[in-house]
Nucleic acid binder design. Structure first.
Ligand code: MN
Ligand code: MN
Ligand code: MN
Ligand code: MN
Lengths: 218, 218
DNA sequence: AAAAAAATTTAGGTAAAGCTAAAAAATAAA
DNA sequence: TTTATTTTTTAGCTTTACCTAAATTTTTTT
């Protein structure tokens, strides 16, 4: 089935907004795809007609099996392109998302298949998100947000879930990136800030706001 | 100026159809972009409004300076992507055009700039067509079609202007590709066929139809 | 259980990009 | 230079994907 760029973006957003059990609401989706609720309703009818979502007017909706499969295909393309942009073209990881937002809609299957091989079949994109394989399967890593790691534990950063330039600036300043080994020294419950140590560097204190976007494996 | 995919395709087609002096006709363009003449007229009005073409109803039209610049940008992207697909992803040259037809519309300037560097700033795409640099300048090679090369001359293939799978099959069979050195042995004026020799291989006779798409430098 | 608020859909509109059929203009033939 | 043919444009319609404003349904508060 050949979908439009818009349809693909909606499907992908529904996938990302979905939390097991609840289904997705129209207002949330509207904000997510940057349109108005009325436009979302129209699209929902179309996606429903194409059997990509389960939809009853006035109720939350979910992706069908087919919709889910398509979402994973788009996400796979998005993340492989992001990996390409960072690893091959030398982009910083916070610059690649917007470009991948376009590249993810290039339709050739053969292209993405060869791109994957060219990149060495990576399992994670530059932000640490898992890349679905051609069957839609993703590696699941048990990862915990930095503010929830017990004191004295030594962990490895493996995902950053805020991709803004400002977050990038902060991380760069402290020399934190995917793969960095961090020892959690202390949590301050007053403001949720966390004191950490990287290698032999002096101690660093990160705010709760920053720590909550840094995910690690133990 | 942000143009739609359609607008870019039209502009590029006008560029390719243009022969110095005449300007381009609506019927030719219609065939070229695979639409009907009526649709072309509508687009011409839009492109004219945007100052991309010089257009008077019922007359042939040409690209403006701006239109020309944009055409070259799209062609630059198209050919750089084709080069990428062949050189990095290992596609055969006859498979890449359709994919590049989509990739050429990805908007990021930074992307194409980095892609070019990554590829080593190639001057020619896999079909032998010159790649415009970021100022729109192209290397011009004086090249002659194989059926017009004088007898006994030794030449080098540097462009194939038919990219069909069938042409690819024929060239592969004879071991002809860009860079192949060919000695023109004899022309038969009866049917325009040409007898050639490659290295120490046995003589080959190419039809006029095939020879006319093989361009060489002396 | 009503009333108020919030979420969602419908109604009516716009712009892009296509289509067919008919009208108009330009070009070629007689 | 008329007439015929071809090319181009107009008119009127369609689909996708948006929009605002109004109506409807669901949910939350009193
Ligand atoms: Mn991304
Ligand atoms: Mn996208
Ligand atoms: Mn091409
Ligand atoms: Mn194109």
């Amino acid at each position: 089935m050949k979908l439009s760029e818009s349809e693909e973006n909606y499907i992908k957003c529904i996938y990302h907004l979905h939390v097991p059990g609840q289904g997705v609401s129209a207002t949330l989706l509207a904000a997510s795809v940057q349109t108005k609720a009325a436009s979302v309703t129209e699209m929902l009818k179309r996606l429903s007609r194409k059997k990509l979502i389960n939809y009853k007017p006035y109720h939350n909706f979910t992706l069908t099996e087919l919709g889910n499969k398509i979402a994973l295909e788009v996400i796979r393309k998005h993340r492989l392109w992001e990996y390409f942009l960072v690893e091959k073209l030398g982009f910083d990881w916070h610059e690649v998302h917007t470009i991948a937002e376009e590249l993810e809609h290039i339709s050739s299957k053969e292209l993405i298949h060869r791109l994957e091989a060219f990149l060495g079949s990576p399992s994670f994109d530059p932000h640490g998100d898992p890349i679905p394989d051609r069957f839609g399967k993703m590696k699941t890593v048990r990862q915990t947000c930095l503010s929830e790691i017990p004191e004295k534990k030594l962990v490895t950063v493996n995902a950053i879930t805020d991709q803004s330039a400002t977050m990038h600036e902060l991380l760069k300043h402290y020399g934190i990136h995917i793969g960095t080994k961090i020892k959690v020294n202390r949590h301050f419950s007053f403001d949720g800030s966390v004191e950490i140590k990287i290698n032999k560097q002096p101690l660093i204190t990160l705010s709760r706001k920053a720590a909550q976007y840094i995910f690690c494996t133990i």
